[in-house]
Nucleic acid binder design. Structure first.
Lengths: 136, 136
DNA sequence: ATATGTGCAAAGCATTTGCGGAGAT
DNA sequence: ATCTCCGCAAATGCTTTGCACATAT
């Protein structure tokens, strides 16, 4: 039986407060304000629990560690190449599932948009070399 | 200056022969047939080189290690939940980039479809618990 | 000849797990 | 009292890196 612990509450609270998907390390520093000696392993364990309960969803971006957010309705993500933040896109074209050739049964899909977010503004063409995605 | 080595040739050859994105380990066993004591580190180093030259593209699927394929025209991927293989989808709706709210400048996008591939057939509803994506 | 590439082993990161003790029911 | 959960440290899996030697130019 699943118990209520202050750790789990703090983790869910951190996610609820955030307007965007968070890294485990971000959840850690956020939640540590209410549970000081909270551990990363506990974060991961609870994230997996919350995901199984479908309360939380994981957001995977190419070449990046997983982020996590409160599960809501179906939506997609926008990844800003400049500031590296991830934003929710609350729009979805149902035509997407029809891209598969016949014979393929599609039950879900995922869309990631890349570009620059409003606060990073339009791309400047006068840049020596665009800062490519950081290696880990 | 970039040199031509039999290792690099074997790696590119393995990718060229494959009709789908390959795991580094798959490239290894494939390429080891022409270069027996080929090393995984060499695979990774060359993949990164080939990616910089835009000859190879990496394919990242949520919760899975990266796969690699010969870079071609813009396309997307289908991930079979049953056999875990990844297939190329040579179709794309240009409407996708329009999903972003205004203020967001989209320069690229990625689409992943999930479901069952032709050889795995349609989902059976009489299954105790669907075999969820294997943990690593 | 010299710079680049390779193999091997070790290091790095993100994530998971074993274990003994703490806390929720 | 019992069973779940936590913190810590160690383990794991993928990927990168340091180093000494090999090889393409």
């Amino acid at each position: 039986m699943v118990r209520t612990t202050k750790q789990r509450a703090a983790i869910a609270e951190a996610l609820r407060r955030a307007a965007r998907p968070l890294l485990p390390s971000e959840i850690l520093s956020e939640a540590q304000q209410s549970v000081p000696n909270l551990n990363l392993a506990t974060i991961y364990r609870n994230l997996n629990l919350l995901i199984e309960e479908r309360l939380v969803a994981s957001v995977h971006l190419p070449g990046q560690p997983a982020r996590f957010e409160i599960a809501g309705h179906h939506h997609h993500h926008f990844h800003c190449r400049q500031c590296d933040k991830v934003f929710d896109i609350h729009a979805c074209s149902s035509a997407i599932s029809q891209l598969a050739p016949k014979g393929f049964a599609v039950d879900d899909h995922e869309v990631i948009l890349y570009g620059r977010c409003p606060s990073c503004g339009p791309a400047r063409q006068t840049r020596a070399a665009r800062p490519r995605q950081a290696r880990r």
